[in-house]
């Protein structure tokens, strides 16, 4: 059996349409990306915490293939999640892109892989 990776919990939760992060059992702070120890207090004890999936757009770029015509340029967003974490994702409704826009998670298939994506919300 292959060794379990520190981030496996995240993708297993994505398959259940849940956005999660590790939460320190000692100082109770959450962390992302996953790591074996808490970057705040050093504790190696943690639980998996489900996140609200709500946040706002901190910044964004349009990512195209550098040389080939790219029929599906991605709107890459850096999200400030409500729980104080940052997360890289894509905006589904790219036409509504705006720094500071409120967004919520929506799970979708990209190139055969289930990914947590985001969509803007009108009245958060």
């Amino acid at each position: 059996m292959p060794a379990k990776r520190d981030q496996d919990f995240f993708w297993e939760a994505v398959d259940r349409s849940e956005l999660t992060a590790q939460q320190c059992s000692d100082c109770e702070k959450r962390r992302h990306p996953p790591a074996p120890a808490c970057p705040h207090c050093g504790s190696q004890h943690f639980t998996i915490s489900r996140l609200s999936g709500s946040g706002t757009i901190h910044s964004w770029i349009i990512s195209c293939h550098p040389t080939l015509p790219d029929p599906n340029p991605k709107t890459v967003i850096l999200v400030d999640l409500a729980e104080g974490l940052r997360f890289i994702s894509n905006l589904i409704d790219a036409e509504n892109i705006r720094i500071g826009a409120p967004v919520t998670v929506e799970f979708g298939e990209v190139n055969g892989r289930r990914l947590p994506l985001f969509r803007t919300v009108k009245n958060p």
Partner: peptide, 14 residues
């Protein structure tokens, strides 16, 4: 995106 072994929190998103 289908190969998320490395840098999987970035590469699949572009």
């Amino acid at each position: 995106a289908a190969d998320l072994e490395q840098r999987e929190f970035y590469r699949g998103f572009g």
